[in-house]
Nucleic acid binder design. Structure first.
Lengths: 237, 237
DNA sequence: AACTCCAATTGATCCGATGAATGTGATTGG
DNA sequence: CCAATCACATTCATCGGATCAATTGGAGTT
């Protein structure tokens, strides 16, 4: 095994074993390189790899530190995975997101504070205002959509679940979904579904919330594959 | 923003934009560094970070290539996240795994080929043989357990779902769970649950498979939290 | 006590050189 | 002509040193 990989695994193992704790400062590059028996440049590449994984954090002039290692931090590389698979695998990502978001919404129904329920309502009001404009500000809609789902997920009581959901659909994927909604009716359908989820949360009804959340993501899935035909939209026409 | 982060994001964006495709060879370090306007060492640290994310792959004497970018490859850093959170967050990871594994098992019920159903049976037979030995070879049990779940997940028809499940519980977490099963009865209960999942798959019954899979993971969760704490206290005292 | 300024510390970046692994094409033997 | 072998060019891996930039902490001043 190469020297760099060895150095990476050594630091990883030190963290797993508890020798390095979150927030702790590492020795200076010169000493740590000597301790691991590699050149400073080699150590830097190992450190850089761990920084990319959000395991370490460097501050010029200060030192290198272990991050908080919180799941939401370490899992945020997943959004890049979702972004580069928006052609072939977007449907698969959305399927996973549907499963997880349904569960998270059900969990949040009994945990989200009243204040944040009100904030969800505000987000929806703002989204409807934006949707009424012509032309629609898609970037604003993407941001509001993301805030809505993130706020719910953050109150499911499971940080790992929230982090995975948050990163399951990257910005690029979400932006593409909204770009595809040039049809005003599709935008309004999405807003109706969000309202339905919100009402279920207000009623503290986990099962209703679960179903509406699942149905909402399913609608997104079907609008991506172009196979929505029988649902609510045909009834309107 | 630093030069290295700029280089990382540039390469990432080239992949998202399709300028760099899976399997494609990158220019030699010297040229690419010049093209991005950084020194070779700086570029190497950027490349090393992308290698750590499984986005690039380097072969000494040959060159640097874009990987297949398949979800199972890019998501395998998650196992490290699971490993370092086995103290505080193991329960949360298992909760997510329970949700996903239940769905994947239900999906696999109608998709897994007969040959692999037979192979699942072989795995269970072997596991029972190992469990009957004294002392039990825990490493062998961990490997068989992992094979069992991986084989099912691989036939759920969703590569992303399979990859997330596969990496949701890292080796360390799984090993710890099995180490905790010094009680022969816990081992036998796990094997019974595996058999139940297997029978449901044989019957091609998605709902039965879903329930048994969820129940199985739930059992692991409970053995880690409530019961295990009790048993551990008693054993220590 | 609070502020300013400077020097030490530390990571960031760059440069050049050598080692190691791979691919390629010429050479050689059949 | 074909196959095996070997030397060479290419390329990444690793190393040591040098300079730049940002932060920190203490000396000195008000």
């Amino acid at each position: 095994m190469g020297a760099i990989e060895t150095a990476i695994d050594t630091v990883k193992q030190m963290i797993i074993d508890g020798e390095l704790r979150p927030g702790q400062k590492l020795p200076v590059e010169k000493n740590l390189a000597e301790q691991l028996g590699v050149a400073r440049n080699t150590l830097r590449e190992a450190v850089r790899a761990l920084v990319a994984m959000r395991v370490l954090q460097t501050r010029q002039g200060d030192g290198t530190y272990v991050t908080s290692l919180s799941p939401d931090l370490l899992l945020d590389g997943m959004s890049f995975v979702a972004d580069i698979h928006l052609d072939a695998g977007a449907g698969e990502f959305l399927h996973v997101r549907r499963i997880l978001e349904a569960e998270a919404t059900a969990l949040a129904a009994t945990r989200i504070p009243d204040a944040d329920l009100a904030r969800l309502g505000d987000l929806l009001d703002e989204a409807e205002t934006v949707a009424a404009c012509d032309p629609v500000d898609h970037e604003k809609m993407v941001a509001l959509d993301q805030d809505f789902h993130a706020l719910i997920a953050s109150h499911c009581g499971n940080a790992v679940l929230a982090a995975v959901i948050q990163n399951m659909s990257g910005r690029t994927v979400r932006a593409r979904v909204w770009r595809g909604m040039s049809d005003p009716e599709a935008v309004h359908r999405t807003l109706r579904e969000h309202r339905a989820v919100h009402r279920a949360l207000l009623a503290r009804d986990s099962e209703r919330a679960r179903l509406h959340a699942a149905l909402h993501v399913l609608g997104v899935e079907e609008s991506l594959t172009g196979s929505r035909a029988f649902a609510g939209e045909a009834a309107h026409g």
